[in-house]
Structures are given as structure tokens and as C-alpha cells.
């Protein structure tokens, strides 16, 4: 159990060179967008990972509130951090790709704006957890649940807002070979992110246990002789 995340990390490390080789050597260059489309193979899986861990964070926060479970709390924190991390990746690579193909980094495309809003929600989650008043982990959990529920609403709201702005070209249909490469990259990134979330969750549980152990050690023998 303890070594599963490290095994995943190793597998991901082994898969990454193959991914890069496959992306750059074995996959045809997309006709319309040219070589810059190679960013796609890591950008899109990162976006999916960002959404997935946002939902996982919301669900884990719900379990945390219902069961008062440390495990779920640790998972929620780790998933929240991964959402923010993947979100940074998506939000930086997106404009880089846009700059190469559309000629402008920020088009105000519905997906761009809704990803940015989702990212803001989860940054707020981490901020509340880190700097909130005492007992703010329940508020943070409520925020995470709200954020996960908000995902489709945000997307739809941004879409209706977009109708008042000019439309931009979106990725059309892609050949099967590109999708296959995408899935290989998705597998690598997925293993990496699951491993990192796993390690982070274990750390968060460890931190909770350590805090409790310190308090216990402090109150039992240390009460007689406070230094």
C-alpha cells in the first residue's frame, strides 16, 4: 500500500519519454494549426485532470462533513491542491497555444474563462484552509462542495455571456492517431497526478496524527512540569 504511489511515479517517469517521442515523432502534424498543436497532447489531459480532481475534492469534502473523516479531509486537501496545480498548467499552456495558433493569448473563449473561474474557486478553497479562522475547515469543505456543483453552472453562464462577444475557431475533429497519442499522455499525467495526490494525502493524514500525538504528549506527562 505504502509503495503504490512511488510505483505509479516510476511508471509515469518511464512513460513520459515514450509520450514525448510519440507526440513529436509518431503523430502526424495537424494540418490547420501546425506544430503548435503538439501542446494539445498535454494541455487537454491537464484540463481533464483539473476538472476530475475538482469533482473529487467536492465529493471528498462532502464525505468529510458527513462522516467527520480525517481520510476524506486529507484527500480533499490533496485533490484541491492538484486542481490548482493542473489549473495553473492549463491556464499557462492555453494562452501559449492560443498565441501560436490564434495569434492572441486570451480570446475570452468560454472554456478559457470557465477554467479560470473554476481555478479561482479552488485557490479560494486553499486560501481559506490555510488562513481561515479557527474551525474554517468546515467552511472550506462547504466551499469545495459549492465549487464542484458550480462547475457546470459556470460553464453555462460563461457560454451565455459569450453570446454577446465574437466567436473564435475551436478545435475541429481529429484523426484517430492523434486521439491515441492523447490517451497515452493522459495515462502518464494521470499516474503522475494520482501519485502526487496520494503522497500529499498521506502527508496530510500524517500531519493530523502528529498534531494529535503532540497534544497528547503535551497534556499527559508534560502537565506536571511545564517548561
Amino acid at each position: 500500500m505504502k509503495y503504490i504511489p512511488y510505483a505509479l511515479l516510476l511508471a509515469a517517469a518511464a512513460l513520459f519519454p515514450y509520450c514525448v517521442q510519440r507526440v513529436f515523432l509518431h503523430t502526424p502534424i495537424e494540418a490547420e494549426m501546425g506544430t503548435a498543436q503538439k501542446i494539445f497532447y498535454f494541455h487537454v489531459p491537464l484540463a481533464w485532470i483539473c476538472m476530475l480532481f475538482a469533482v473529487i475534492c467536492g465529493v471528498a469534502a462532502g464525505v468529510q462533513l458527513r462522516r467527520r473523516s480525517d481520510k476524506a479531509e486529507a484527500l480533499a486537501v490533496a485533490a484541491g491542491e492538484m486542481t490548482v496545480l493542473a489549473g495553473v498548467g492549463v491556464l499557462i499552456t492555453g494562452p501559449i497555444w492560443g498565441d501560436a495558433t490564434w495569434g492572441t493569448p486570451w480570446t475570452g473563449d468560454a472554456r478559457q474563462v470557465s477554467t479560470a473561474l473554476l481555478w479561482l474557486v479552488f485557490v479560494a478553497y486553499l486560501l481559506v484552509r490555510e488562513y481561515g479562522p479557527p474551525n474554517s475547515e468546515r467552511i472550506a469543505a462547504a466551499l469545495a462542495i459549492f465549487g464542484a456543483i458550480d462547475v457546470p453552472i459556470i460553464y453555462y453562464a460563461v457560454k451565455i455571456w459569450k453570446t454577446t462577444h465574437p466567436q473564435t475557431g475551436v478545435v475541429g475533429s481529429l484523426p484517430q492517431s492523434m486521439w491515441n497519442t492523447l490517451f497515452v499522455c493522459l495515462a502518464a499525467l494521470m499516474m503522475l497526478s494520482i501519485a502526487l495526490v496520494w503522497i500529499r494525502a498521506a502527508q496530510a493524514r500524517m500531519a493530523i496524527a502528529l498534531d494529535q500525538a503532540w497534544i497528547a504528549a503535551d497534556t499527559q506527562p508534560g502537565a506536571a512540569q511545564p517548561a
Binding site: 501546425g34 506544430t35 503548435a36 503538439k38 499557462i92
Partner: peptide
């Protein structure tokens, strides 16, 4: 060349 630098930046950032 521009695609190349964009790709290097994107992958470097990730």
C-alpha cells in the same frame, strides 16, 4: 521557429 519556442515554453512550464 515560433511553434518550436511555444512548445518548449509550454512543456517547460508543465
Amino acid at each position: 521557429a515560433s511553434d518550436y519556442s511555444h512548445i518548449v515554453w509550454a512543456y517547460g512550464v508543465i
